[in-house]
Design a protein around this nucleic acid. Structure first.
Length: 903
RNA sequence: GGGCGCAUAGCUCAGUUGGUUAGAGCGUCUCUCUUACACAGAGAAGGUCAGGGGUUCGAGUCCCUUUGCGCCCACCA
C-alpha cells in the first residue's frame, strides 16, 4: 500500500522538490554530449538559445511566456529522443542596467556616476550584477525551465566578450565598420546616441510657429513654419519648390537668419511640398534628417547648435547655455519684438522619444561607429526568402522583408560605461589600432601611449551573437560543432528587428550559417481584459503571485493554451485558477487510478476488451495523432486544449466512471480495467508533460510505484507517438476501427445522457434507481453487453433493465404501456421508463410532440440538402454521412409518431 | 502615407487543407457532499460567427467592400 495521496494536488510541496530532482538527476543535460567519450555525432540535436533576460531584471509575465513555450518545445523533443540543449543565460542590458545602478547610487550615496568615475562605477555595476544576477535565473527555474544550467552564459563573460571583439574586428577588417560624424538620434537625458529602433514616435499636440525669413536688403520676406523654433539658430538655407510661383523669384537670393544675422541662400528642391505649410522650408542640416539630406545635395554647411545635454551651444549666439525649450521660448519672444513673427497654431504631430528614458530625442551630428548594413541585410533577406529560415507565423516574413529592404546603417556606439568597450585604440599621433587583444603599442607608429575608445557597443551587438557565442564561438569547441546551428529561435514579435534580424545577419556573416532554421514568434501578454500591461496603469500581471496562488503548471497551461503564434493573449487570475482546477482534476484521476491498482488483488492485466476499453483507446490514438500534427505545425494551444478535453471529458467523466463498475466486480474484469486505466493515464501524463511538467512528473512517479512490472520508459524520455505501437498489446492503426468504436460508444453515451436528462427534467431523485426497457433492434447485443454500465451511469436498476430486439416479440412486457411510461427515442433505439407514480405524465405528449417536431425539421432539412446539387457534387463520403443522418432522423420521427398515437 | 492583426455565447477566447445542428473556460439557472476530485458531478439556458456583396452543391473558414478597435513601419516642415 502506497502512502495516501493528498486529496488536492499540493503544488507547493511538489514543485521545488521535483525541480531539484530533475536538476540533480541531470535531466536537463543533452543525453548525447560532445564533451563525453561516448558521444555519437550522428544523433540529431535539438537546440534553443534562451532569449537572455536582463541580468538584473525581475521575472515578468513576458518571461513566463517564453519560458513556457520554449520549455514545451524542449521537453517535447527530449521525449521524442532528440539530444536536446536549452542554453540559458542573461544579458548585461547596457542602458537599462546602468540606469538602475545610477539611480541606486544617487539614492543611497547621493553621487553621480561621473563623480565616482568610470572604473569605480563599473566595479559597482558588477557588484550589483552579483547581487541581483541570480534572481532572474532562479525565478526562471521556478517556471520549470529545463535548461542546462551548467552551460549558463552572460553577455559580459570573458568568452562572450571575446566573441564580441572577434565580430567587431572581423567586420572592421572587411570594411563593414566605419566611424564618422553623422546625423544620429541623441538622447539628451542619457547622453548617448541611440539607434533608430530605440526611438519611439508618439502623436502629440505641438505648436506650429510661423515666422518671416527676411530677404537681404529688402522688406520682402518668405513665410516659414517650424515646430522647433530653436533650430532656426542652425539654419543654413531656406528651400522652396522649383515650380512654386510664389517663391520662384527668390531662388538664389539671400535671406537673413532671425536674431543671428547670418546670411543664407534660398534654394530650390523638389522635396519641398508646395501644399504644406507655407510652402517654404527652413533647412537645419544639423538637427533634421531630411534637411541633412537636402544639405548634402546642395553642399550646404552643417551647423550644430545643441550640446550633449541639448542646451544651445556656442553656435547659438546669445542663447548659448539655454536649455532647448527655454531657448525656444526666448528666441520666439525676441523674434516677436523684432516683428518677425506671423502666428502660431496648435498642431498634431509625431514626436520622437527615447524608448528608454522617454524624453524627446534630438537628431544631432555626432561622431559614432556604424555597421554598413546593406551586405548583411541582403544575406539575411536571402536566408528567409530561400527557406533556410522559416518564420512562424508566416506573415511576419513580410514584415521582416520590409524592414531589411529599407534598413539604414546601424549606429553601434553608445556613450555609456556598462558594456563591451569598443576594441579600438588611439595613439597620440592620431593612428587607430583595431585589435582582438589589447594592444601594447600603436599598430602604425609603435607609440606606447594608447587610449582606448571611450564608447561601448550597443547591447544588441553582443546579443546578436548569442546563438553561437554561447556555444564557444569563435573557437571550434565541441559544443559549437555539434549544437550549432541551433534549431528554433523562440521570442516575441516585438524584438523581431532588434534581435532576431540581427542574429540572422550576424550568424550568416560570422559563422556562414543561419543560426536557426525556425523562428517562432509569440505575442504579447495582456491583462484579463485585453488591456496592455503597464506599471502606471497598475494592471501588472505578476507571474510570481500567480504561481504562488495557483501553481506553476496552472500558469504555464494558461499561457500555452491561450496563445496562438504571433497573437497577443490575455492572462489573468481567473484563467489560471481554472487551470489550477485542471491540474487538480488530473491529480485526482491519477489518485483514483493509483489507488485502484494498489488495492487490486492481482496485477493489472489485459483481458478481453470491453467497448469502453476500445473506445478510450481509440480516442487516445486519435488524440496522439492530432497532438503530433498540431505540434508539428506549432499549434501548441490547440494541442493543449485537446488533451484537456480528452482527460477531463473522455477519460475522467466516462472511462473512469465505467471503470468503477468494472473494478467493483473484481477478478479479471477489474484487472483489465486497471490495466487500461494505467496505460491511458500514463499516455495522458506524457502528452501533458511538456505543458505541466510538475504534476505529471509527480503522478507518474507514483504510478510507476504501483505498476511494478511495467515496461514504461521514463516519462521524460517517451513520447506517446513513439510508444503507442510498442506499448499497446494490440496496436490499432486502422481509423475505421476507431470510428466504429467511437460510434458505438456514442450511442451508449446518448442513451445515458437522454435518461439523465429526463430524470432531471422530471425531478427524479438522483438516488432513485428506476426500471427501464430498451428496444434496441440491431444494437441489442451491443447494448446488452453494456447493460451494467448503462444501469450504473444512468441510475437504473440493473435487475429491472430489459434490453429487447423488438417489442413485438414480447407483447406481454408491461413496460410497453405507453400511458404509464415516458419514452425516449435515441437513434434507432427506444427507451421506456415507467415513471408513473413518480411524476405526472400528463405533459408527456407535449414533450414527445416537441421532439417529433425537431426530428421532422431535421428530416426536412436533410431531404432538401440531399435533393440539391450537394448529392451530385460533394464527395461521396460526405454525402453518405448525411444520408445516414437522414435515415436516423426518419426512424426517430417514425418512432415518435407511433408513440404519440399510443398516447 | 504604407502594411498587418482583431471583430464568434453576458465576459475572455478556441475553431489552419471550406463539409452542412459552431466549442471551451468563467459567469447564470436546477439538482447532488454518488468512498478520485465541491478546485467536483449531472442537467439546462445562452450565438442571424461586426454589416454588405461575391465564389461554391456547401462559407465562421476563401475573395471584395464598409464600419469599429488595436499594432507595426514611414523624413512632410
Amino acid at each position: 500500500m502506497t502512502k495516501e495521496l493528498p486529496k488536492a494536488y499540493d503544488f507547493k510541496s511538489t514543485e521545488a522538490r521535483v525541480y531539484a530532482m530533475w536538476e540533480k538527476g541531470g535531466y536537463f543535460k543533452p543525453w548525447n554530449d560532445p564533451n563525453q567519450p561516448d558521444f555519437d555525432p550522428t544523433v540529431e540535436p535539438f537546440v534553443i538559445s534562451i532569449p537572455p533576460p536582463n541580468v538584473t531584471g525581475e521575472l515578468h509575465i513576458g518571461h513566463a511566456m517564453f519560458v513556457s513555450i520554449e520549455d514545451l518545445m524542449i521537453r517535447y523533443h527530449r521525449m521524442k529522443g532528440y539530444s536536446t540543449l536549452w542554453v540559458p543565460g542573461t544579458d548585461h542590458a547596457g542602458i537599462a542596467t546602468q540606469l538602475m545602478v545610477e539611480r541606486d547610487l544617487l539614492k543611497n550615496e547621493e553621487v553621480t556616476r561621473e563623480e565616482i568615475g568610470r572604473e569605480e562605477f563599473i566595479k559597482r555595476t558588477w557588484e550589483w550584477k552579483r547581487k541581483y544576477g541570480g534572481m532572474i535565473t532562479n525565478q526562471i527555474r521556478r517556471l520549470g525551465a529545463s535548461c542546462d544550467w551548467e552551460r549558463e552564459r552572460f553577455t559580459l563573460d570573458d568568452g562572450l566578450s571575446r566573441a564580441v571583439r572577434e565580430a567587431f574586428v572581423t567586420l572592421y577588417e572587411k570594411g563593414l565598420i566605419y566611424r564618422g560624424p553623422r546625423l544620429i538620434n541623441w538622447s539628451p537625458g542619457l547622453k548617448t546616441a541611440v539607434s533608430d529602433l530605440e526611438v519611439e514616435y508618439s502623436e502629440e499636440q505641438a505648436t506650429l510657429y510661423y515666422f518671416k525669413y527676411k530677404l537681404k536688403d529688402s522688406d520682402e520676406f518668405i513665410p516659414v513654419a517650424t515646430i522647433r523654433p530653436e533650430t532656426i539658430l542652425g539654419d543654413t538655407a531656406v528651400a522652396v519648390h522649383p515650380n512654386d510661383d510664389r517663391y520662384k523669384k527668390y531662388i538664389g537670393k539671400t535671406v537673413i537668419v532671425p536674431m543671428m544675422g547670418r546670411e543664407i541662400p534660398v534654394i530650390a528642391d523638389e522635396y519641398v511640398s508646395m501644399e504644406f505649410g507655407t510652402g517654404a522650408l527652413k533647412i537645419t542640416p544639423g538637427h533634421d534628417p531630411n534637411d541633412y539630406d537636402i544639405a548634402q545635395r546642395h553642399h550646404l554647411p552643417v551647423i550644430s547648435v545643441l550640446d550633449e545635454a541639448a542646451r544651445i551651444n556656442e553656435n547659438g549666439g546669445q542663447y548659448k547655455g539655454q536649455d532647448r525649450f527655454d531657448a525656444r521660448k526666448n528666441l520666439w519672444a525676441d523674434m516677436k519684438k523684432a516683428g518677425l513673427v506671423i502666428k502660431t497654431e496648435p498642431y498634431l504631430t509625431t514626436i520622437p522619444r527615447s524608448q528608454r528614458g522617454g524624453e524627446i530625442v534630438e537628431p544631432m551630428i555626432s561622431t559614432q561607429w556604424f555597421v554598413k548594413i546593406e551586405p548583411l541585410a541582403k544575406a539575411a533577406l536571402e536566408a528567409v526568402r530561400d527557406g533556410r529560415i522559416k518564420i512562424v507565423p508566416e506573415r511576419f516574413e513580410k514584415v521582416y522583408f520590409n524592414w531589411l529592404e529599407n534598413i539604414k546603417d546601424w549606429c553601434i556606439s553608445r556613450q555609456l560605461w556598462w558594456g563591451h568597450r569598443i576594441p579600438v585604440w588611439y595613439c597620440p599621433n592620431g593612428h587607430m589600432t583595431v585589435a582582438r587583444e589589447d594592444p601594447i603599442q600603436c599598430a602604425a607608429c609603435g607609440a606606447k601611449e594608447l587610449h582606448q575608445d571611450e564608447d561601448v557597443l550597443d547591447t544588441w551587438f553582443s546579443s546578436g551573437l548569442w546563438p553561437f557565442s554561447t556555444l564557444g564561438w569563435p573557437d571550434e569547441t565541441p559544443d559549437y560543432k555539434y549544437f550549432y546551428p541551433t534549431s528554433y529561435m523562440e521570442t516575441g514579435y516585438d524584438i523581431l528587428f532588434f534581435w532576431v534580424a540581427r542574429m540572422i545577419m550576424s550568424g550568416l556573416e560570422y559563422t556562414g550559417k543561419a543560426p536557426f532554421h525556425t523562428v517562432y514568434l509569440h505575442g504579447l501578454v495582456r491583462d484579463e481584459m485585453g488591456q496592455k500591461i503597464s506599471k502606471t496603469k497598475g494592471n501588472v500581471v505578476d507571474p510570481l503571485i500567480l504561481m504562488d496562488e495557483f501553481g506553476t503548471d496552472a500558469l504555464r497551461f494558461t499561457i500555452l493554451v491561450g496563445s496562438t503564434p504571433g497573437n497577443d493573449t490575455n492572462v489573468g487570475p481567473k484563467k489560471v485558477e481554472a487551470n489550477r482546477n485542471f491540474a487538480n482534476k488530473l491529480w485526482n484521476v491519477g489518485r483514483f487510478v493509483i489507488n485502484a491498482i494498489d488495492s487490486l488483488q492481482t496485477a493489472p492485466q489485459l483481458g478481453d476488451y470491453t467497448l469502453a476499453d476500445s473506445w478510450i483507446w481509440a480516442r487516445l490514438q486519435q488524440l496522439v495523432r492530432d497532438v503530433e500534427r498540431l505540434f508539428q505545425t506549432f499549434q501548441y494551444g490547440e494541442a493543449g486544449r485537446q488533451i484537456y478535453e480528452f482527460i477531463w471529458s473522455d477519460f475522467a467523466d466516462w472511462y473512469v466512471e465505467i471503470a468503477k463498475q468494472e473494478l467493483s466486480e473484481g477478478g479479471a474484469r477489474a484487472a483489465r480495467a486497471a490495466d487500461t486505466l494505467a496505460r491511458v493515464l500514463d499516455m495522458s501524463l506524457r502528452l501533458l508533460h511538456p505543458f505541466t511538467p510538475f504534476v505529471t512528473e509527480e503522478l507518474w512517479d507514483h504510478l510507476r510505484q504501483v505498476v511494478l512490472d511495467s515496461p514504461l520508459k521514463d516519462l521524460a524520455n517517451g513520447w506517446p507517438e513513439v510508444l503507442i505501437v510498442a506499448r499497446w498489446p494490440e496496436p490499432r492503426e486502422v481509423e475505421d476501427w476507431e470510428e466504429s468504436k467511437v460510434t458505438d460508444f456514442s450511442l451508449m453515451q446518448e442513451i445515458i445522457r437522454s435518461i439523465r436528462n429526463l430524470r432531471a427534467e422530471k425531478n427524479v431523485a438522483p438516488s432513485k434507481r428506476i426500471a427501464a426497457t430498451i428496444v434496441a433492434g440491431d444494437k441489442t447485443n451491443l447494448l446488452k453487453e453494456q447493460s451494467a454500465t448503462i444501469a450504473s451511469l444512468a441510475g437504473l436498476d440493473l435487475s429491472q433493465l430489459t434490453i429487447l430486439e423488438s417489442l413485438k416479440k414480447k407483447p406481454e412486457e408491461p413496460l410497453q404501456d405507453a400511458s404509464r411510461s415516458a419514452v425516449l427515442v435515441v437513434g434507432s433505439t427506444e427507451i421506456y421508463l415507467p415513471l408513473a407514480g413518480m411524476v405526472d405524465l400528463s405533459n408527456e405528449r407535449a414533450r414527445l410532440e416537441k421532439e417529433l417536431k425537431e426530428a421532422q425539421s431535421q428530416v426536412e432539412r436533410l431531404e432538401k440538402l440531399l435533393g440539391s446539387d450537394f448529392a451530385n457534387k460533394a464527395p461521396e463520403a460526405v454525402v453518405a454521412k448525411e444520408r445516414e443522418k437522414l435515415a436516423a432522423f426518419k426512424e426517430t420521427a417514425e418512432k415518435l409518431k407511433v408513440q404519440l398515437e399510443a398516447k
